[in-house]
Amino acid sequence: MDIATQKPRWLLRLVLSAGVLAALYAANLGVQAGFIEYVQRIILIAGINVILAVGLNLINGTTGQFSIGHAGFMAVGAYAAAFTGVKLAPHVTALLGAGTLADGVTFNLALLVGALLAAGAGVLVGLPSLRLKGDYLAIVTLGFGEIIRILFNNAQFLGAATGYFGDSPAGLPTYTSFFWVFFWVIVIVVVVRNVTFSQTGRSLIAIREDEIAAEAMAIPTTRLKVLAFTLSAATAGIAGGLFAHMQSGIRPEDFKFDKSIDMIVMIIVGGLGSISGAALGGVFVAVTLELMRDLQQYRLVLYALLLIVIMLVRPEGLLGTREISLAALRRRFRQPERP
């Protein structure tokens, strides 16, 4: 509340943003120098997972709808960004000359195109949510994810089932770095947080709590549900674009139902409806997936058991709908003083 009603102080924000960018840049150098490639990769995946989880949580946690086909949005973003990047790079280089600047511009334009197309898919999938509740909607999202995968499997200009590797024999350019992943993590977390703690966010929660009452309060439930889907799909699209530029190519199997399940695990572990919980869940999944790499065939058995046990024992997840924030921590430490 007190934060929301504060008048913005633009100069402070500017300084703060510059500081964050500088810190990111320094951290980027530190990560590149300090960790072997294997660890760097885990860190990047953790960041991408945080984006996926925080975005998905907007639908599944905050709005109380249920998407279990989120890998579909990620796939749209990944393919769109990869394709755009490949086609755009020569033009941008011609304009700016080869180098970090051109790469950065190409990369972020490609990511934005990916986000845009994924958002379009989000509108498409969000529309049935006007008429469907809960589990029905879940099935539609699942069906959507499958249809997307089948389409990419058959799209010749995107390499069909072999996958898309761009036009050069070296494969897709690996633009994705610590700096850009966490730049987007910060942007997306801030955007989602600001949406959640606003009149829009309250309305989304109202839809989750009681849709009939929400309608009786003149809340435009239809528009808001589509908005949640659109925004969430866009974030998955960014994550897809970041993912695509981590390796030489992307395949339709990278976006199977398993990937959607990974995302569900992320938000369930952390607590549906909590941004910080989702972020924690994203890191958790990245780390456990790596730890279980040798146990590949047991991984999903363990995941499945984890899901069931969480549902039976603590269905609200680690944090429930609570958030970890400075204000909450301060409250916690102040509490003992109260009579």
Partner: peptide, 11 residues
């Protein structure tokens, strides 16, 4: 229950 069911299916 829906998430539980997904869990059972995966298991």
């Amino acid at each position: 229950p829906l998430i539980t069911a997904i869990g059972v299916s995966l298991f």
